[in-house]
């Protein structure tokens, strides 16, 4: 078995809550309680879970934007767990992120071409207009889009700009945090296709986080199901979706309304199957 691109070993992350009493110690939130996973090169790995399950915290720790309380994170053979920022240059070049909110992920005061070129400038590469045009083209935007500001674009177009920025430093790993959750259905398909195509063309390793298992199933080969700071089930997406083994996964799968099931007569009480009570 080759060395995985991302290896997470028994990672925990505790946050202190603001003190509620002078006498008692500050309560802590256990955002991650011993998470382990491995992502192989070229794999499309999905992480599914509901709000507050710790999936965003996990992503940030993998991207070294947050630090684990304990455990170990190894990216491309380098242990990044306690590496200082100045030694993370390789990670900042090879791993890029796409975020959920197309409103807040682009600086409203910057032109699109400066947004896309930012990672290049930071990493000391010459940020040529040529490269920016190439990136705009790769995500299906016209070259003159570079002169405009984010608010002049629709949600789907802004997400394309985010993707162009992420691809600028030619990363090998792309992490997408709910990239289509805020988009209209008719635009969602375009962005999913774009991510899929780019991952294929550029041989990227993809880590795709979503609360929606049916999207993960469409995009990813393997999935980890998270609940309350833990991974409760991991496996090939088709298998997890068709025959979930953990009770939480079963509840999650049955709660997703789908068109074929609804047209076959499924009701809301069928969505609650697998729920305790």
């Amino acid at each position: 078995m080759p060395e995985p691109v991302i290896r997470v070993v028994d990672v925990t992350r505790d946050y202190p809550r603001p003190r509620t009493s002078l006498l008692k110690p500050a309560p802590t939130v256990h955002a991650l309680r011993g998470v382990s996973l491995e992502v192989q090169a070229g794999e499309r790995f999905g992480i599914v879970g509901e709000s507050g399950c710790g999936k965003s915290t996990l992503l940030r720790i993998i991207a070294a934007l947050d630090r684990a309380t304990s455990g170990q994170v190894v990216v491309e053979g380098t242990d990044i767990t306690r590496l200082p920022e100045r030694r993370l240059k390789f990670l900042r070049e090879n791993l890029q992120l796409v975020f959920q909110d197309p409103m807040s992920s682009l600086d409203p005061r910057m032109r699109v071409r400066d947004i896309i070129a930012e990672p290049l400038v930071v990493q000391g590469h010459p940020a040529s207009g040529e490269r920016v045009r190439e990136l705009l083209d790769a995500v299906g935007l016209s070259p003159d889009a570079g002169d405009r500001y984010p608010h002049q674009f629709s949600g789907g177009q802004r997400q394309r700009i985010s993707i162009a920025r992420a691809l600028a430093p030619r990363p090998r790993i792309l992490i997408a945090d709910e990239p289509v959750s805020a988009l209209d259905v008719s635009v969602r398909a375009q962005v999913l296709n774009l991510i899929s195509d780019l991952v294929d063309e550029l041989n990227l390793t993809l880590v795709f986080v979503s609360h929606d298992l049916s999207i993960i199933k469409h995009v990813c080969d393997r999935v980890a199901v998270m609940n309350a700071g833990e991974i409760v089930e991991t496996g090939p997406t088709g298998q997890v979706y068709a025959t979930p083994t953990h009770p939480y996964t079963r509840r999650l799968v049955s709660a997703i309304p789908t068109l074929p099931r609804a047209l076959a007569g499924a009701t809301t009480s069928d969505l609650l199957r697998g729920a305790p009570e």
């Binding site: 940030r60 991207a63 934007l65 920022e85 993370l88 240059k89 900042r92 070049e93 791993l95 890029q96 992120l97 975020f99 959920q100 909110d101 807040s104 992920s105 682009l106 600086d107 947004i115 930012e118 990672p119 930071v122 990493q123 985010s162 920025r165 992420a166 430093p169």
Partner: peptide, 14 residues
């Protein structure tokens, strides 16, 4: 707290 600052950090901005 915005994601563009996160993106800038992920790109290596200090």
């Amino acid at each position: 707290r915005t994601e563009y600052v996160l993106a800038a950090r992920a790109a290596g901005r200090t």
